[in-house]
């Protein structure tokens, strides 16, 4: 697992209070991990904080699974 994926999963586990084995790439924050719309906003903020990047609202809307977040952040941090 990439370093980015590790850090993303740690944040998801912490913020949503879910078991680590549920936090797989295909897991949807709302449907699979019990998040509500406010939780997802906070998750995106936590990703921004952890990775020192800004995630514009248009991009944030596309981040609905753990894998989406990992992919976005791998790309964003590679650029930086």
């Amino acid at each position: 697992m990439s370093d980015v994926a590790e850090r993303v999963k740690k944040i998801v586990i912490e913020h949503l209070g879910v078991d680590a084995d549920k936090v797989i790439d295909s897991a949807n924050f709302i449907d699979d991990l019990g998040a509500d719309s406010l939780d997802t906003v906070e998750l995106v903020m936590a990703f921004e904080e952890e990775f020192g990047v800004e995630i514009p609202d248009e991009s944030a809307e596309g981040i609905v699974t753990v894998g989406d977040a990992v992919k976005f952040l791998e790309k964003a941090t590679a650029k930086a």
Binding site: L38, E42, M45
Partner: peptide, 10 residues
């Protein structure tokens, strides 16, 4: 402001 949590108000 981007760091203000959505849970701040509720």
């Amino acid at each position: 402001p981007r760091r203000v949590s959505p849970f701040f108000v509720p």
